[in-house]
Computed example of a mutant assay.
Amino acid sequence: MDTVIIGVAFVIAVVSTLLAYNVGGRIWVTKFAIRGPINSEGRRVRPLIRKPISGLYGEIAALSMVMVILFMVNLVTEETGIWQLLSQQRWFALALFVTVVLIVVCYEIYACKQAKKQGKGQRFVRYLARGYVPYTFYSIVNFAAVILIVGLIVGQTFVQHQDYKIVERQLEVLTEDINASEAPPATKMVLTEQIYSKVREGASLMVDQINTLVLLVFCSFGAQYLVKHTRIKDAFEADALVQFDVLLGLSIGIIVVYAWSVHFFIYDGFFGKALDALENNREYIASGGWQMLQRFNDLFLDLTQRRGLTGFMISLTNDRGGLLLALGAAGWLIDRHKERISQQVPTQMSEQQN
């Protein structure tokens, strides 16, 4: 069902964009054309490109990027989905949809008024407004897709947090049992194994929450990379390009603050309660023989190492989190390499002219 929703939305957006550029005529083709990269000095990096490319291709490419990201995020967020999210939050989704429509319509009205203030003729403003009518559907789909990406990530994080709370309550019961019990060492050792298992399970759920939010950084990086290092960037104003950098920086900041908060306010205390309960029962378990004590010490040491900041960071880099961080690091290196090349090109061109 989710795939059908994405496919139908994509078709609606593409058709509306085609209609917009058709109805808007040459006005739209000229205004939103992709004219080739421009360096920091305002010169064309590729002066051989003389004919502007219709912004239609940039619009469809940007839409495709958003839809692919939405599709991938929907696959990764296993415990939630587009249809499930919309059905569970239908009134909020409806209110958000109306808000998006109002924002899009208000912006289009503002854009037409700005064109008139800039001295554009009535014909220009008329064709601009005509194109915006079908383009409204494209904008709504794009807005909605971005909101769904964030909603799926946040929804998955919320589900994982609820699962963690269940494990936390189960751990509390086990720690109460091992402290209150006057059972023989073997029974306490069984409770120790269960506590160890629950701590590992709860820690994994906490790490999964953070790794799910890392998807937000990955999506932001993908959008930022596409609009800054391909010809699509010439379809965006300079202020819009800066906003992509701000979005990426903001998403990274959110993840860093959230990860530190989880570690110091939840993760550390979660381990602390379990370790305190185990420490209180060390002597009872030691009376069961050296083999039992050795197993106890191994479990205790492993939890102690995992509790620290180093253990927490290692947990974050396992599995999906490590892959996303590796992709982000690779993208950052490519970004720096592209910037160095773009700075060298104007220098080489000026040397050739001299």
Rank of each mutant, 00 (worst) to 15 (best):
I103C: 05
V68T: 09
F296V: 12
L226E: 05
V141H: 03
M292L: 14
L152F: 09
R306M: 04
L309G: 08
F92P: 04
T230S: 07
L309V: 05
Y258W: 07
S40C: 08
V73L: 00
Q88K: 12
S54L: 04
E59N: 00
F264W: 05
T136A: 08
K117I: 06
D319P: 03
A13F: 04
A129K: 00
D239S: 10
L247V: 10
S287E: 08
A115I: 11
R90W: 15
N142R: 01
V207R: 13
A223D: 01
L70Q: 04
Q305W: 05
G328Q: 04
E182R: 09
A93P: 01
Q343E: 12
Q291E: 01
C219N: 12
L293S: 08
A144G: 11
F71V: 13
F296I: 04
I34H: 06
Q353E: 04
L48I: 02
L19S: 15
D239L: 07
H337A: 12
L303R: 02
Q243L: 03
K51E: 02
K273N: 11
R123I: 09
F158L: 13
V257K: 09
T212K: 09
I166T: 14
R90H: 06
M65V: 13
E201Y: 05
Y284D: 15
L75V: 11
G322R: 05
A186G: 05
Q162T: 02
I69L: 15
E108G: 05
S204D: 06
A183M: 13
P134H: 01
N74P: 00
R44K: 02
V199E: 11
L63T: 12
A274Y: 10
I149N: 03
R295K: 14
L213N: 04
L171E: 06
R43T: 09
E237M: 14
F312V: 10
A240M: 13
R26L: 12
A259D: 05
A183E: 14
A13C: 01
S315Q: 11
Q160E: 08
Q209K: 12
L174A: 11
L309D: 13
I166E: 12
S350Q: 13
A129W: 02
L148N: 02
L299Y: 13
V242Q: 07
V8L: 10
V246N: 12
F296N: 06
I314P: 12
I153E: 01
A183L: 12
I149Q: 04
S261W: 08
Q352A: 01
E237Q: 10
T157A: 03
V154C: 04
L48H: 01
M292F: 07
Q114M: 07
L299R: 01
G272N: 13
